[in-house]
Write a protein that binds this DNA or RNA. Structure first.
Lengths: 144, 144
DNA sequence: GTAATAGAGGATAAAAAGGTCTTAATATAT
DNA sequence: ATATATTAAGACCTTTTTATCCTCTATTAC
């Protein structure tokens, strides 16, 4: 559904948010260990999230990544998906047609639209913050 | 969402079904023109569908592909998806975890499950036959 | 026998995923 | 102030996976 980069990006953001709640900044090494992702590849994903203002980065010793406490509640899953994978998940045709719309639909257009719209709403209403809560309580996991 | 092979497979099956209704058998060349897909690649996809008993193939002049009239109504979208892409769309974790279940969920497990279950039901209840109807009427399209 | 068609396997190309190395920034010790 | 160590940024390279193409074989209507 999502690219690997996007999966790592979401997992990383949830982890960073959980730590940022306690004013902790986390390093790339820490992130890739906690979410079980390849370090170098994760670094690139972090760059994308940083460039898009979703997370903050600080270089040098004690540096790393965090999220503004104020902004934490404003960051939605959709923001991360859009920054990394673009809008193909919403826009793309289920059968791969370049042009597929209500006016010129593929045979599954309507049936897919129902599900895709629901996915869109879910992504746009789910915050990274809320996802980080279960993690802290040990109810959800980011690796294995 | 689906692989290219799967997209072509679904589009091809819908086209074949539409023609089979009028007892017409269609060649690979015809299929790849009508659904705008690479011919050689489509050939492989057709082989998979044939091996799985979803479509019939006949070699030689006047040969090609068709679908048993009796079976037409029994073929679901899910049959094609399963034959080509396997069960990753149902089974796989939205965040890429190898192990992700109700007992050991990722942070988005529940929210994804709702949508995935709906997708599963849709695929399992939508027949290739019903999708071929709109096509014949010019209401839906398989290319562009 | 010939031509038309699908089947099967491997070869090539493109895209996605992952890795290496150098540069830039900065906290800290000296 | 300066050097050093630590950490992210950025450019480039390698590997893996997916998509596409090519060649040869098998089948069959005529």
């Amino acid at each position: 559904m999502f690219s690997k980069a996007c999966e790592y990006g979401i997992r990383a953001a949830i982890y960073i948010a959980g730590q940022a709640k306690h004013d902790k900044r986390v390093s790339l090494k820490d992130i890739s260990q906690k979410i079980d992702s390849p370090e170098a590849f994760t670094a690139k994903v972090m760059q994308i999230l940083t460039r898009n203002g979703i997370i903050n980065s600080v270089k040098g010793p004690t540096g790393g990544f965090d999220i503004d406490e104020k902004q934490m509640n404003n960051i939605k899953l959709s923001d991360i998906v859009y920054a990394i994978d673009g809008d193909s998940i919403y826009r793309g045709c289920g059968l791969g047609l370049k042009e597929c719309s209500a006016k010129r639909p593929c045979p599954v257009h309507d049936k897919f639209k129902v599900i895709r719209d629901e996915l869109k709403v879910m992504l746009e209403t789910t915050t990274i913050y809320e996802l980080s809560i279960g993690l802290k309580d040990g109810l959800t996991f980011l690796k294995r």
